[in-house]
């Protein structure tokens, strides 16, 4: 089933202004703004839509604190959409929306949508590095450090759900939508990728009590570790709350930096995630701090050497 990954996440929020300020500072571009909300796009057109919590056009909320109202997956073509409609239509109502997309709920009641993807194909350079023994990534006189680099999120990368029954939901995504497990944290949850995406994961789950069900975090891919650090350090400087990072995960190998957000979920920058195909064999390990990251840092104020030696100030 040729599903690519999340195209759009829709939230119902109380404070549109706070969400707007956060998402624009995070680096997304505001589009289609009205009194009732707006959308915020990464460079390829994937992104986040916010509406007032009471907006009657939104799917009903979960009975928890989660503000996520719908996850819309992009698929390759109309044929895939029809394939999904036929499969999921066997045991649930499928709504065909005016824009041609499909709507339903998954086996744990998360609202789902599917549409022929609206993402644009990106043609952008990777982060270029110079490494002894390797051909230079940047030719002579091309600089690596640019304080003013835009550092914009390129594409919606992945989402992580808190779920009351990970076995059941994993089964749904694997058997009905043909997702594949790449790796798994025992008793926590699996990393999943759909058929038309080689990214290590577009969906991860964390087993929790039912009252926690919702969105643990969402993430966008950045150009590379340098732009991730630059974008994150700008967020800290603006007063946003760094929650975890910067660091680098083990499963997926992606660099990460998570922030709290007025959308009531963590919003992550990620970069340089592993790609996998059908030749990969899944790994499994218990969740632990050691397993969750290769290393972890914390942002501090900028500093420079120089000036009088310690104890001689003034």
């Amino acid at each position: 089933m040729r599903i690519i990954g999340p195209d759009e996440l829709i939230f119902g929020v109380d404070d549109l202004d706070a969400c707007r300020a956060f998402l624009v500072d995070y680096g997304l571009d505001e589009v289609d703004r009205t009194e009732g909300g707006a959308s915020y796009h990464a460079l390829d057109g994937t992104g986040i839509t916010i509406r007032k919590r009471s907006d009657p056009s939104l799917p009903r909320p979960l009975p928890t604190a989660s503000m996520l109202r719908k996850t819309i997956y992009g698929v390759e073509d109309q044929e895939t959409l029809e394939e999904i409609a036929a499969e999921l239509g066997k045991d649930r109502d499928i709504i065909r929306e005016a824009d041609g997309s499909l709507s339903c709920r998954d086996d744990l009641d998360f609202a789902l949508g599917f549409r022929v993807t609206t993402r644009r194909k990106l043609d952008l350079p990777a982060e270029m590095i110079n490494s002894p023994g390797a051909k230079p990534g940047r030719p002579a006189n091309v600089l690596g450090a640019n304080q003013d680099a835009e550092a914009k999120p390129r594409t919606l990368s992945h989402i992580v759900y808190f779920v009351p029954d990970m076995e059941r939901l994993t089964k749904f995504y694997i058997e009905r939508l043909k997702f594949v497990i790449t790796d798994k944290f025992t008793n926590t949850g699996p990393f999943l990728r759909p058929q038309s995406n080689f990214d290590h994961h577009v969906l991860f789950m964390i087993q929790t009590p039912a009252y926690m069900q919702g969105l643990e975090h969402l993430a966008f891919h950045m150009q590379g570790p340098t732009e991730l650090m630059l974008a994150g350090s700008r967020m800290v400087k603006k007063g946003y709350e760094s929650f975890w990072g910067p660091g680098r995960h083990k499963f997926g190998s992606n660099w990460f930096w998570y922030f709290n957000s007025p959308l009531g979920t963590h919003v992550e920058y990620d970069a340089d995630m592993d790609l996998h195909d059908g030749a990969w064999t899944e790994r499994e390990t218990p969740m632990s701090a050691e397993a969750a990251q290769l290393f972890l840092f914390e942002n501090v104020e900028k500093w420079a050497p120089g000036g009088p030696p310690p104890g001689k100030q003034g």
């Binding site: 928890t64 604190a65 989660s66 503000m67 808190f162 929790t208 009252y211 926690m212 919702g214 643990e216 709350e241 929650f243 709290n260 957000s261 007025p262 009531g264 979920t265 963590h266």
Partner: peptide, 18 residues
């Protein structure tokens, strides 16, 4: 704002969320 938990201001008790 990590996951939206709500707390009573005076008692500190969580009334909704994780």
């Amino acid at each position: 704002f990590a996951h939206g938990a709500l707390f009573d201001i005076a008692s500190g008790e969580c009334v909704l969320g994780p």
